[in-house]
Design a protein around this nucleic acid. Sequence first.
DNA 1: CGCTTGACCTGGAGTTACTCCAGGCTGGTA
DNA 2: TACCAGCCTGGAGTAACTCCAGGTCAAGCG
Lengths: 121, 121
Amino acid sequence: MRIAEASAQSGLSIDTIRYYEKIGMLQPIGRGADGQRRFTAEDIQWMTQLNWLRQTGMPQADMRAFAVSVHSGTTDTSERYAILLRHRTVLAQRRRELEACERYLDHKLSVYAPQQEKTHG
Amino acid sequence: MRIAEASAQSGLSIDTIRYYEKIGMLQPIGRGADGQRRFTAEDIQWMTQLNWLRQTGMPQADMRAFAVSVHSGTTDTSERYAILLRHRTVLAQRRRELEACERYLDHKLSVYAPQQEKTHG
DNA sequence: CGCTTGACCTGGAGTTACTCCAGGCTGGTA
DNA sequence: TACCAGCCTGGAGTAACTCCAGGTCAAGCG
């Protein structure tokens, strides 16, 4: 499939896909006779996975280390495991922050509410 | 108090504080006879609040709109309310994404686990 | 066949939100 | 007097995209 559909399916923007290929986050994508990229189902799967990590703010350096490890074809998954585990911890921390901020906002909003609450019910 | 302590108390880095003042996110901070910034408790309170919003990814444009509204001294809080409410919605959405990614990571980690679990039990 | 349109290409500039750095001033201390 | 920490400014650098100009190619139309 071509880049537009690849973008729709993976969730990465067209520009981001080209950018990721440029910096080596994706292995070189195959090209058709016309010189345009042709994505395989495997490419899409990998890009979708990257999108998950990216959306939750994994630094590119970590994503690249992960990518390199996967593409190296090594059976030693300890590095990938470590990267994911670290990110898992970061996410848990971030979720706590986020929840705290939600409570803070709810408090703030309730303070402002009296002037807004015509629709409050 | 001076900038180092202001940074420690608000959670904003020294550079970020100066940057925020430069772009108008903070009202001009008072200066001592030596030309250095002196922060009041009110400054700190405001900076701490900004740090909450910032840490959860509110765009600077929104933060500035919020700041301008607060500093304008207007009693009409509808804009602030709208900004906070919007951010509240974004956070809820982000938390759902984050939780989904946590589940995804847990799944991934469990797949890698068999090769790593010497220290698991 | 020539023309236009749309999807794609590349290299490079622009954006956001900081972060770091060089070079310089000041107040207190040995 | 010399030195140092802590502060100052303007400006360059960074991360992670995002946008843009200018160009190619295949398909459809008259």
